[in-house]
């Protein structure tokens, strides 16, 4: 058929991807959901759900196969972690060094809030002299110079 001929001439030897010989298996939404949490090993920046590289397709096929065998999501993840290490998980484990990432919103908020609190405390302290009411100044002055200097009172 024309299609095959065209592709053969087009692709020639400069192949970078495996050829498709048999149709890939049908994949349920569940497969894509699980694959989304797994990193595609070849592409490095995409999940196994998004990528169309050979490995990602095989990973989706393995997920579908294992789901059909009744394995749980955790077991499937574990299957890939055993082979690729925790690197394959897009969600970093909440322990060890990556625990800090999970705490980063709290740390960031706490640091910024602390900075803001210190800043506002300082500005409030500086604002105090100006905020002392005139009545108070008058009373203090009255205590200092009894009797108060009449010239100071002129408007």
């Amino acid at each position: 058929m024309r299609l095959a001929l065209l592709l053969l001439t087009l692709l020639g030897l400069a192949l970078a991807q495996p050829p498709q010989t048999t149709p890939p298996p049908d994949l349920s939404p569940e497969v894509f959901r699980i694959a989304k949490g797994l990193r595609c090993p070849v592409c490095q920046g995409e999940s196994a759900s998004e990528s169309n590289s050979g490995v990602a397709q095989e990973m989706r096929r393995l997920i579908a196969e294992q789901l059909a065998q009744g394995k749980s999501e955790a077991e499937i993840r574990q299957f890939f972690v055993e082979r690729y290490g925790p690197w394959i998980l897009y969600e970093p484990p909440k322990q060890g060094l990556t625990l800090w990432v999970w705490l980063s919103p709290l740390i960031g908020l706490a640091l910024l809030a602390y900075g803001l609190w210190r800043y506002l405390a300082a500005t409030r302290a500086r604002a105090v002299p100006a905020d002392v009411s005139e009545e108070e100044i008058a009373r203090l002055e009255a205590e200092l110079h009894q009797p108060p200097d009449p010239h100071r009172r002129t408007p």
Binding site: P18, T21, F80
Partner: peptide, 14 residues
């Protein structure tokens, strides 16, 4: 190994 299952078993990334 046409499907590349062994590649996954060995954790290859290419």
């Amino acid at each position: 190994d046409p499907k590349g299952t062994l590649g996954v078993d060995y954790g290859t990334y290419g």
